[in-house]
């Protein structure tokens, strides 16, 4: 079986570099962080390795860490729900009400910001929302004497910024599943006497569920892991578990605690992914 041996070498040689790279820079670092999350000290200077559970205990004994985790989950939920409410109708209009070249162009226009620089887009909101900023000035010029709008460093600003970041993703996933619905199904339902609302509720929505679910998960997961968005737009109001983790590495230098919190966050993420895997599987293939 000379051909079989040749084939094996070809597979190993072709996939080797990519997967070696992924191992060294994704899976090995995750393992290293897991290891240090059980150590008393981070990798600074010479220390005896000393096994401890105290960083995980910290999470369960210190209320503010749990509160901040809940806050992150709440943030994820709010952003996801708003994206759903805005994104699904937008995707529906795009997929079923607009035809031809217009649809393609609009679709591209919606997705384009999503793939562009996330940091700059968050930055742009700080310019818009700051007191004396564009939004404030616009309101003042239309309603002179209206109370000054100050959304800078507020929870609302965080939510607005994150919705702005992830809304295109929801429109994208919903659009893909809505577009896959054959128009003749809708015509068939109409010919059977179904009203527009019935069609939406009994035909379109059930068939679009995979897209909705995929969009929800793919937004919820990165949002609960976000840190620079709340930091830049929320200021003191934007303290969440992500910013706490970030500061363990950049300010406090308590890497083991940061590692433990990362893994608790990762556990939550994996749980969500595992539950939603059946929905995501198909989406992954098409995306």
């Amino acid at each position: 079986m000379r051909a079989e041996t040749r084939r094996r070498w070809a597979i190993a040689g072709l996939t080797g570099p990519a997967y070696l790279w992924l191992t060294l820079t994704i899976f090995l670092p995750l393992s290293a962080m897991l290891w240090f999350s059980f150590q008393r000290k981070g990798p600074f200077g010479r220390h005896e390795t000393e096994f401890t559970l105290k960083h995980y205990e910290a999470f369960f004994t210190k209320d503010y860490l749990q509160d901040l985790t809940w806050r992150s989950l709440e943030m994820g939920l709010q952003v996801t729900v708003i994206c759903l409410i805005l994104g699904f109708p937008a995707a529906y209009v795009l997929a079923k009400r607009i035809k031809g070249r217009w649809r393609e162009a609009l679709f591209l226009l919606i997705v384009l910001p999503f793939w562009s620089n996330a940091l700059v887009r968050i930055f742009s909101w700080t310019v818009v929302l700051r007191p004396g900023g564009v939004l404030d000035s616009a309101v003042q010029s239309v309603f002179p004497g209206a109370p000054s709008i100050d959304l800078a460093d507020s929870w609302s600003a965080v939510i607005i910024g994150l919705v702005h970041s992830y809304l295109p993703y929801m429109i994208l996933t919903c659009y893909l599943s809505l577009q896959a619905i054959d128009d003749s199904l809708i015509e068939a339902a109409r010919s059977l006497g179904a009203s527009a609302l019935t069609i939406l509720w009994r035909i379109v929505l059930p068939l679009a569920i995979p897209g909705l679910a995929a969009g929800a998960v793919l937004i919820f997961v990165p949002v609960i892991g976000s840190f620079f968005e709340p930091k830049l737009l929320g200021g003191t109001q934007g303290v969440v578990i992500g910013t706490v983790i970030e500061e363990q590495f950049t300010v406090v230098s308590n890497w083991p605690l940061g590692g433990a919190l990362s893994f608790i966050l990762l556990a939550i993420v994996l749980l969500i992914l595992a539950v939603s895997y059946p929905f995501l599987k198909d989406r992954m293939r098409t995306a």
Partner: peptide
Amino acid sequence: VMQLLLFPPITIPWLIIGTAMLVLFFW
């Protein structure tokens, strides 16, 4: 399995991946 291994880098929040890289590279 190899195809599934492509998804962690995409789905795990970059915060976690970034800090993990910091830990390993520093160490």
